[in-house]
């Protein structure tokens, strides 16, 4: 077996240093090495989006990246969306107000995709929202309340800037 490789990754602003086998996925690294269990495995073949994280600013599927590819990079997971004191941020509050979930399993990925959208588009249209979460499969909700939550968050974030 190939030797372990030493990597350091900035996760939600904290640097995590560990040694990993070369084939370890970023998803497994986040969950089992860095203790960030908010990121979930749904398919592990790049379709469902449950494993989505922000990787150097862009949303990616952590099941389809290797941990070693994250060496020296920064990753943000669902845990990083909360405020510094651990309370839910605006997007997370909106998801609760709209009850945009049931089992909650897809929700970290949804939030990450929605966060990436709102970071670049303060006033997204319905089509923009669909495009942003088009690669996130939710079996529970039928998406309507998720869309409503993202719209609610966008409105609140815009109002906060006024």
């Amino acid at each position: 077996m190939t030797d372990a490789i030493h990597i350091h990754v900035s996760i939600n602003g904290n640097t995590v240093t560990d040694s990993v086998i070369p084939r370890m996925t970023l998803l497994d690294f986040l969950r089992y090495k860095a203790g960030m269990t908010g990121t979930h495995a749904g398919c592990e073949h790049g379709v469902c989006g449950a494993c989505s994280v922000i990787f150097d600013g862009d949303p990616v599927r952590s099941c389809s990246l290797l941990a070693v590819q994250a060496n020296g990079k920064s990753v943000m997971t669902v845990e990083g969306l909360s405020n510094a004191d651990g309370t839910p941020g605006t997007l997370q509050e909106a998801f609760q107000d709209a009850h945009a979930m049931q089992c909650g399993y897809c929700i970290p990925g949804m939030l990450v995709s929605a966060h990436a959208l709102l970071a670049r588009n303060a006033d997204p249209s319905l089509e923009d929202i669909k495009e942003a979460i088009g690669g996130n499969i939710c079996r529970c909700t039928g998406y309507v309340q998720i869309i409503e939550a993202i719209q609610l968050a966008a409105t609140r974030l815009r109002e906060a800037l006024k």
Binding site: S82, Q92, Q96, G104
Partner: peptide, 10 residues
């Protein structure tokens, strides 16, 4: 239930 899901702590 929703709070633990949006914070990733479930």
């Amino acid at each position: 239930e929703d709070k633990r899901f949006v914070t990733g702590t479930a």
